[in-house]
C-alpha cells in the first residue's frame, strides 16, 4: 500500500478499500408507474448514489408501463428492480431501496458482511 499513493479523488473510504480504480456505474432502475413504492425507490437510490458514487454514476429510470417490451429483454420480474449494468458483474437489486446497506452490497460498493 505504501508504494501506491492514495488518490484524492476517492469518493469514500469504503470504496477505496476495495482496491480497483474507480469506475463509472451504469444503473437502470425499472419501476412500474408512479406508485408509492416507485417513488420511494427513486428517492432512495438517488440519495445512495449521491452519497457513495457522486460523479461517477449514470442512473436511468425506466417506467415499464411505458416500455413493457423491456421487461422481457431485461429479465425483469420484480418491481422496482435496479440493474447494475457496469461495472460487471451484472447485479439486480430489488425492492424499494430502503435498506441502503443492502443496496451498497448489491452494488459491490461494500462487501457483504
Amino acid at each position: 500500500m505504501s508504494t501506491k499513493p492514495v488518490p484524492d479523488t476517492i469518493p469514500s473510504a469504503e470504496a477505496g478499500l476495495t482496491g480497483p480504480p474507480p469506475q463509472t456505474y451504469l444503473l437502470r432502475l425499472y419501476v412500474t408507474g408512479a406508485t408509492a413504492k416507485s417513488a420511494r425507490a427513486i428517492a432512495n437510490i438517488k440519495t445512495i448514489c449521491e452519497e457513495h458514487l457522486e460523479g461517477r454514476y449514470v442512473l436511468e429510470v425506466v417506467d415499464l408501463y411505458q416500455q413493457p417490451e423491456l421487461a422481457q429483454g431485461q429479465q425483469i420480474i420484480a418491481a422496482p428492480t435496479l440493474i447494475k449494468e457496469l461495472p460487471l458483474p451484472l447485479r439486480r437489486i430489488i425492492g424499494d431501496m430502503s435498506s441502503s446497506e443492502r443496496v451498497l452490497v448489491g452494488l459491490d460498493v461494500r462487501r457483504n458482511g
Binding site: 425499472y30 412500474t32 413504492k37 420511494r40 425507490a41 432512495n44 415499464l64 408501463y65 413493457p68 417490451e69 421487461a71 422481457q72 429479465q75 425483469i76 420480474i77 420484480a78 418491481a79 422496482p80 428492480t81 458483474p89 451484472l90 447485479r91 439486480r92 437489486i93 430489488i94 425492492g95 424499494d96 431501496m97 430502503s98 435498506s99 441502503s100 443492502r102 443496496v103 452490497v105 448489491g106
Partner: peptide
C-alpha cells in the same frame, strides 16, 4: 418467454412486488 432468475444475482433491499413479471405477461 423464458424467465431467468439467478438467486445470487439478486439483492433484496426492501419492499417489492412482481409487477415486472405482470407487465411482461400482460405485454
Amino acid at each position: 418467454d423464458f424467465v431467468f432468475i439467478e438467486r445470487s444475482e439478486i439483492e433484496e433491499t426492501g419492499e417489492f412486488d412482481l409487477e415486472g413479471l405482470f407487465v411482461r405477461l400482460g405485454y
